[in-house]
C-alpha cells in the first residue's frame, strides 16, 4: 500500500505548492441572525410539510397516538419501530401499533415489505420541513425501505432554519443521521413530479 501514501503526500504537496491567494474564514453570525424566522412555528411547519408532499399532524392532549397512526395508515400490516413508549403532550403513552423491532430481522433485506416505520425525529426545520433523524437502530434501512414513514417529533423541537438545526444535531452512536423532508420524489421523467421513487412514498410527522 506504499503507492497510496505516495499519492497522499503528492496531493498535499501539490495543494501547498499551487495555492495562490489565501482567504480569511468568514464570520457567519450576521447571516445567521438575519436568517428567516417564523412567529408561529407549528403553523409554518404544517404548511411547509404540505408543500413538500407530506403532512404534519398536531397531536392534542388526550389523543391516543396509536389511534391516530392507525387512522392514517389503516392498511399497514408490517409496522416496524424501535419505540415502545412516547411522551404525548407531557404524558407517557405505550406505543402498541408496531408489529416488530427493526433490529429483530436477520439482515437488512428482510425489511423489504415493511408497510410502515415509526421513528423518532430530533429536530424539525420550519423553512423546509426537514426532520433530523439520528440512527438509533443497527438496521438504518428502516428509514428508507418502508412504504410509509411516521415520524414522532416534539413540537418544542421545531427550529426556524438550517443554521439553527446544524447547531443542535449530531449523528449519535451509530454514526449516521439524515434530514428527511417529506416523501421520496423524482421528476426524472419529463419533469413530472412523482412521489415514491425509492424511499417512503408517504410521510407523516406527528407533533407531540
Amino acid at each position: 500500500m506504499e503507492k497510496k501514501t505516495d499519492s497522499r503526500e503528492a496531493i498535499l504537496a501539490r495543494i501547498r505548492r499551487n495555492t495562490q491567494r489565501v482567504y480569511e474564514r468568514p464570520d457567519l453570525s450576521a447571516l445567521e441572525q438575519a436568517a428567516i424566522h417564523y412567529d408561529d412555528r407549528v403553523e409554518q411547519f404544517r404548511k411547509v410539510m404540505h408543500q413538500m408532499g407530506g403532512r404534519a399532524v398536531l397531536v392534542q392532549p388526550g389523543d391516543d397516538l396509536n389511534e391516530l397512526i392507525r387512522q392514517q395508515y389503516p392498511d399497514a400490516r408490517r409496522v416496524a419501530s424501535a419505540l415502545d413508549r412516547v411522551e404525548v403532550c407531557g404524558r407517557e403513552q405505550a406505543l402498541t401499533c408496531p408489529t416488530f423491532h427493526p433490529d429483530s430481522v436477520a439482515c437488512s433485506r428482510d425489511l423489504d415489505g415493511t408497510d410502515l416505520a415509526i421513528v423518532r425525529g430530533s429536530w424539525g426545520v420550519c423553512e423546509n420541513g426537514a426532520v433530523w433523524i439520528a440512527a438509533d437502530v443497527e438496521q438504518r434501512a428502516v428509514y428508507f425501505i418502508a412504504e410509509a414513514l411516521a415520524i414522532v417529533l416534539d413540537r418544542n423541537c421545531l427550529v426556524d432554519n438550517m443554521h439553527e438545526a446544524y447547531r443542535r444535531i449530531d449523528t449519535g452512536a451509530y454514526g449516521f443521521g439524515v434530514f428527511i423532508s417529506g416523501p421520496s420524489k423524482t421528476a426524472d421523467i419529463e419533469q413530472a413530479l412523482v412521489f415514491g421513487a425509492h424511499g417512503a412514498a408517504d410521510v407523516t410527522v406527528f407533533l407531540v
Binding site: V48, Q51, M52, V125, E127, N128, G129, A130, E138, R140, F144, M162, T171, Y174, G175, F176, G177, V178, F179, I180, S181, G182, P183, S184, K185, G199
Partner: peptide, 16 residues
Amino acid sequence: GQPVTTYTAHYRKPRP
C-alpha cells in the same frame, strides 16, 4: 427550486 432535498444523509461511521 425546492427548499431542500428530501434526504440529506450524514455518513460518519461504518455500519456495525
